[in-house]
């Protein structure tokens, strides 16, 4: 069995990974402000909501098994409840900024906030 617990190489490795991770986080953070929440079930988009335009509490229950209940209000969207076992989706909390994501794996449902508004305007 080896003796060394921590050495130069370990330090370099940790530093490199930390720097890369922080870089990515900052790159993401400077993305444009927006407010479209996209709900995807099984790889297809079932709903897109402009969070800024939502004035009253909107409840979405996609046709999934286990069933999940998604609520959008006050510029936020979140998994209110779920029949799945771990309830990781519910524990993720409220999403409001672009990039924010909550996932329910058993229900194959992804809720995430994308950039700012429609792809184009027709006039």
């Amino acid at each position: 069995m080896k003796n060394r617990v921590f050495g130069k190489v370990d330090l370099i490795l940790i530093a490199a990974v930390t720097v890369c991770a922080l870089l990515f986080i900052f790159m993401r953070g400077s993305a444009s402000d927006g407010g479209t929440a996209v709900i995807t079930v099984n790889s297809s988009v079932i709903e897109e909501l402009n969070l800024k335009e939502i004035k009253e509490r909107t409840v979405i229950t996609p046709d999934t098994d286990p069933k999940v209940t998604i609520v959008a209000e006050n510029g936020e969207i979140y998994f209110e409840s779920s029949e799945c076992r771990d309830k990781i989706c519910v524990r993720t909390g409220r999403l409001s900024k672009p990039g924010d994501t909550a996932v329910c794996l058993p229900a194959k449902t992804v809720v995430s906030i994308t950039g700012s508004g429609p792809d184009a305007i027709t006039y």
Partner: peptide, 9 residues
């Protein structure tokens, strides 16, 4: 591929 959103003026 994928879905798009188009706003109507």
């Amino acid at each position: 591929k994928g879905d798009f959103t188009v706003g109507i003026k």
